[in-house]
């Protein structure tokens, strides 16, 4: 079983529910769609938005070409992390050195910038309750 890292923890069992609501417990967010809270002042609003989103996003890693395969493909990652965390986590899991090339893509389509936020990526590009991340050792989709 893979080692849990501070920012991303390995699931101890295979995912049984591929439901995005497994982003559990954090019901204190009022930024969810469908609700219409009263208009806040800009400062109040920003304070709300800056509250760390501790919910988890399930990412599914899929190797492409001759990239090494992970022991497990599903991981939970804290939603407020940057994509950089995902890159570093994958490198660590694969025991890749800094100079080894590794390319990460969302939905076999594009590479997000390392400072994009996991929750944003999940909201925009998540499918079936998780965010699909393809990785390979040579550039695959330009």
């Amino acid at each position: 079983m893979s080692q849990a890292s501070p920012s991303s923890e390995a699931l101890s069992s295979p995912i049984t529910t591929a439901d995005s609501t497994s982003t559990t417990a954090d019901d204190d967010k009022d930024v969810e769609h469908g609700k219409t809270p009263p208009a806040q002042s800009l400062d109040e609003l920003v304070n709300t938005l800056k509250t760390k989103d501790t919910s988890k996003v399930i990412v599914r890693f899929a190797a492409i070409g001759n990239a090494p395969i992970l022991k497990q493909s599903y991981y939970k990652i804290t939603a407020s992390n940057k994509f950089q965390t995902v890159i570093q986590f994958l490198r660590k899991e694969l025991r890749y050195q800094g100079s080894d090339p590794l390319f990460l893509y969302i939905n076999s389509a594009f590479s997000p910038a390392p400072d994009e936020i996991v929750s944003n990526l999940y909201k925009c590009f998540g499918t079936g309750g998780h965010l699909i991340i393809n990785y390979c050792t040579t550039a695959a989709w330009g």
Binding site: L42, D43, L45, V46, N47, L49, K50, S80, E116, I117, N120, K123, C124
Partner: peptide
């Protein structure tokens, strides 16, 4: 589908992107 849009708010608020 969705509008490609990113929102930038004050006080080091994280960038917001959603569908």
């Amino acid at each position: 589908r969705s509008v490609p849009i990113r929102l930038y708010l004050p006080n080091q608020c994280p960038v917001i992107q959603d569908t």
